[in-house]
């Protein structure tokens, strides 16, 4: 039997949320979908339940983004549904994206790929112990962002970024961004097609 995947859908717009739910129900993967109107409900749910994937509509508020950033579940994937023009924080949060006018089969394909990656990376990745925030910072470092730029993107102080970097180095035993890039590619942390020319 196929592994059951738990998907949370966060959207302010109910029309979009319900529509996406209808599309997702066509997939052959074994999934269970939960729909949330705001991130607080999602946070409560995530604290006590299994979750493999979150799909967030970009119509959510800045505060919602911050709440979702705090969710720390190993191997959790986040897909952004781009329905307006989201800011950079939104992009830094998501692993993959779908567009409002993508056709259903493409949406299903993206979600299935994301789920299979999250299951695959489970074996490889569970021992690295990087937190979601550290992973996020590592990804930004790898695509060439400076400490200062990362601080601006994530709305944190430069000291916080530096302290995260130190933790990454002590957890992984690697310090240079060149070595981090190898780590990120080997562990599927960056999208090769989109980010590779930046390395």
């Amino acid at each position: 039997m196929k592994k059951l995947n738990y998907i949370a859908l966060v959207s302010v717009s109910v029309i979009i949320g319900e529509g996406l739910q209808a599309i997702l129900n066509k997939t052959k993967s074994n999934i269970k979908i939960f729909f949330f109107n705001d991130s607080q409900e999602l946070e409560n749910y995530a604290n006590k339940s299994v979750l493999n994937l979150i799909i967030i509509n970009s119509d959510i508020s800045e505060d919602d983004i911050k709440t979702i950033q705090k969710i720390n579940i190993p191997n959790l994937k986040i897909i952004g549904l781009i329905s307006n023009s989201p800011n950079r924080t939104f992009y830094s949060l998501i692993d993959n994206k779908i567009y409002l006018n993508d056709n259903p089969s493409k949406i299903i394909e993206i979600i299935e790929t994301c789920l299979s990656n999250s299951n695959k990376s489970k074996e490889k990745f569970s021992k690295n112990n990087l937190s979601k925030r550290e992973t996020e910072i590592l990804k930004l470092l790898v695509i060439g962002k400076s400490n200062k730029e990362i601080a601006n993107i994530l709305y944190v102080s430069i000291h916080t970024v530096i302290s995260h970097r130190k933790n990454i180095t002590s957890k992984l035993g690697i310090k240079s961004t060149a070595a981090m890039a190898i780590f990120a590619v080997a562990n599927n942390l960056i999208d090769i097609n989109e980010d590779i020319d930046l390395i």
Partner: peptide, 14 residues
Amino acid sequence: KLLELKNLLIKHLP
């Protein structure tokens, strides 16, 4: 850098 290389080869590359 040799230490990084060792860590990549021993720990991180699948």
